[in-house]
């Protein structure tokens, strides 16, 4: 990989990489820092990249691992400080509510399931691509995805009932 290739990858993938990490950590500053680390790591490992495979799978794998490691490091993968850290960014009311709800859903998922859910359902990767990124079989991805979707669904149904009850809707 030449520097020019790398610069193109950087331009092409910076947005999705930041976005994936954000949807796992719910903190933009953290997502930015970890995404930078991921790109630097990609550059450092350029000598070992298998050119037959799409480079984004390796990049996403590094990014997901960074997000999971970050979660382990702060030992509060329930993302306790994410919302407070967001005050500086301009955000529509809709996006704010959406983020709060998605965050609550994500908190219910173990890190690997969260990664699968984010990559497949939010970023739109195929099952095979998710399997490649996470180094799992397609079957394992499917079954974890089902569990993740079930947890999200159950949370939203419970949340919806709560809102209906509280506001008499």
């Amino acid at each position: 990989m030449t520097r020019t290739d790398f610069e193109q990858i950087l331009e092409r993938y910076q947005r999705p990489v930041i976005s994936i990490i954000y949807k796992m950590t719910f903190n933009w500053e953290v997502a930015r820092d970890l995404a930078q680390d991921a790109f630097v790591d990609l550059w450092r490992s350029r000598g070992t990249i298998d050119s037959r495979r799409p480079v984004f799978t390796l990049l996403y794998r590094i990014a997901v691992n960074k997000a999971i490691d970050y979660g382990r490091k702060i030992k509060t993968f329930p993302l306790s400080d994410g919302l407070a850290a967001e005050g500086d960014f301009s955000e529509t009311m809709e996006a704010r509510e959406l983020r709060a709800t998605l965050k609550q859903c994500a908190e219910r998922l173990p890190p690997r399931q969260r990664a699968i859910f984010v990559l497949r359902d939010m970023e739109g990767l195929s099952i095979d691509e998710v399997a490649e990124v996470l180094g799992q079989s397609a079957g394992a991805v499917r079954s974890n995805l089902h569990l993740a979707r079930q947890a999200v669904r159950n949370h939203l149904v419970a949340y919806h009932k709560e809102v209906v009850y509280e506001y008499g809707l």
């Binding site: 930041i18 976005s19 954000y22 933009w28 997502a31 930015r32 960014f89 301009s90 959406l98």
Partner: peptide, 9 residues
């Protein structure tokens, strides 16, 4: 909708 804000990019 949760696209990275301009400040982050």
């Amino acid at each position: 909708l949760l696209d990275p804000p301009a400040e982050i990019l």
